[in-house]
Simulated assay, not measured.
Amino acid sequence: MTAMKKCIGECRQCAGLFRLGRDVEAALSMVDVFEGAQQLLLSGSADVQQRWAQVLSQMFDCQERHDWLGLADYMEYELIGLLESVPA
């Protein structure tokens, strides 16, 4: 399994935890997911890196509001879409 596929799988798993209301467990997992995503997205274009900063900011806003479903959506759709836009 590639690092990209592993990271995408971890995004989906973490988003699922948020959807199940397991926010403490998901928040701990989220730290590792974001570190892995950061490493993968550093190889992307300047546009990808700018979009990563925007998505990350929006996810942190969701976390501050305790909007776990919104955070799950950002992780599962926006972050995964961004990861998939980076050439292998």
Rank of each mutant, 00 (worst) to 15 (best):
Q49E: 13
F34G: 05
L83G: 05
S29A: 12
H66D: 08
W68A: 02
R19S: 04
Q38W: 15
C62T: 00
A3N: 13
R19V: 02
A26Q: 00
S45P: 08
V33C: 04
A46C: 08
R51K: 15
W68S: 02
Q39K: 14
E10H: 05
R19F: 00
V31G: 09
A72W: 00
H66S: 13
E64Y: 02
M59C: 13
R19C: 03
A46D: 13
S45F: 08
L83A: 06
T2W: 04
I80Q: 07
C14G: 01
E25G: 06
A26I: 02
V31Y: 12
E76R: 07
L17Q: 11
Y77K: 11
A27Q: 11
L82F: 02
G44K: 05
R22H: 09
M4C: 10
G81Q: 12
M4Y: 15
Q63C: 06
V48P: 06
V55D: 10
V55P: 03
C7W: 04
C11R: 02
E78I: 00
C11A: 11
H66V: 10
S45V: 08
G81V: 05
L56V: 06
D73P: 02
V31F: 12
A53E: 11
E76F: 01
M1D: 13
A3M: 13
L79K: 01
L41Q: 07
L20I: 01
R65A: 10
A15D: 02
L17A: 11
D73R: 01
L42A: 13
V48W: 05
M1C: 13
Y74L: 14
E84M: 12
L42Y: 05
F18S: 01
F60K: 05
G81R: 08
C14M: 08
C7N: 05
Y74E: 03
Q54F: 06
Q38V: 08
L28M: 12
F34I: 07
A3L: 14
F18C: 01
Q54V: 07
G9I: 01
V55G: 03
Q63W: 02
A53R: 13
M4F: 15
R51Y: 14
A46G: 09
